[in-house]
């Protein structure tokens, strides 16, 4: 129980770290770490609730989010020569402040919902909601395409966490489906990046603004 709470807090901490991280390469590392903590928390829930199918889910998370996707993203970064690229983020404290507001909102939101859930849910659901909101905030604040993808993936982490703790995991089929979706999405986005860069010589998303019709 305590372990799940600790891991949940770590997940929240990592979300904030991602929000404040400027370097894209480090962002991917943080994402991998988040995946690892997520897998660990799934295992913890599985152990405490005695649910075997959650072990598979944890393994899936480990394989996909700790190994495969980060590897893919790192290769992408290497291919696109982005190792030392940083986001030009203005006012990180402001973003953190907004994040803090979101956390309070999420925690408050979780209070009534969690009354219906069982024991694990009560606290962790708030954190899961906060993770999703923080990832969205991160995507809003970023300009580089790669960090947007990481934000998207982190959002999915939040969803999975909510699912494991609130409803003790989704049916295996759904989970596989989502995993596949995420993987395919990431691959498509990777391909997309090359296209963007060929077109604009840059991965700054603001160039896409020129595509609109006037």
């Amino acid at each position: 129980m305590q372990l799940v709470e600790l891991l949940a807090s770590l997940l929240l901490l990592l979300s904030f770290a991602m929000l404040a991280q400027r370097r894209i390469a480090s962002l991917v590392n943080l994402f991998a770490l988040q995946g690892a903590v997520l897998a660990a928390s799934t295992v913890a829930v599985a152990a405490s609730a005695g649910l075997h199918h959650l072990y598979y889910s944890a393994a899936l998370t480990l394989a996909l989010k700790v190994l495969l996707l980060p590897y893919f993203l790192r290769r992408l970064i290497a291919r696109l020569d982005l190792q030392w690229d940083t986001e030009t983020l203005a006012r990180i404290p402001m973003q953190m402040l907004a994040g803090l507001g979101l956390v309070i909102f999420a925690f408050g939101l979780a209070q009534p919902i969690s009354r219906f859930g069982h024991e694990i849910t009560r606290e962790t659901l708030g954190i899961a909601i906060a993770m999703v909101l923080l990832s969205l905030l991160m995507m809003i604040g970023r300009r580089k395409a790669v960090s947007q993808v990481v934000g998207f993936l982190a959002l999915e982490n939040g969803m999975v966490f909510a699912a494991t703790t609130a409803t003790q995991g989704m049916p295996m089929v759904v989970e596989f489906g989502i995993a596949l979706d995420v993987l395919v999405g990431a691959v498509i986005l990777g391909v997309f990046f090359f296209q963007i860069r060929e077109q604009f010589d840059s991965l700054e998303l603001r160039h896409l603004e020129t595509l609109k019709e006037d």
Binding site: E5, S9, L12, L13, F16, P93, M96, L97, G99, L100, V103, I104, F107, A110, E123, G126, I127
Partner: peptide, 14 residues
């Protein structure tokens, strides 16, 4: 500062 406040919030949540 944010981290400390975040800690406070999680404390209140838990």
């Amino acid at each position: 500062f944010m981290l400390a406040v975040l800690g406070l919030l999680t404390r209140l949540l838990f």
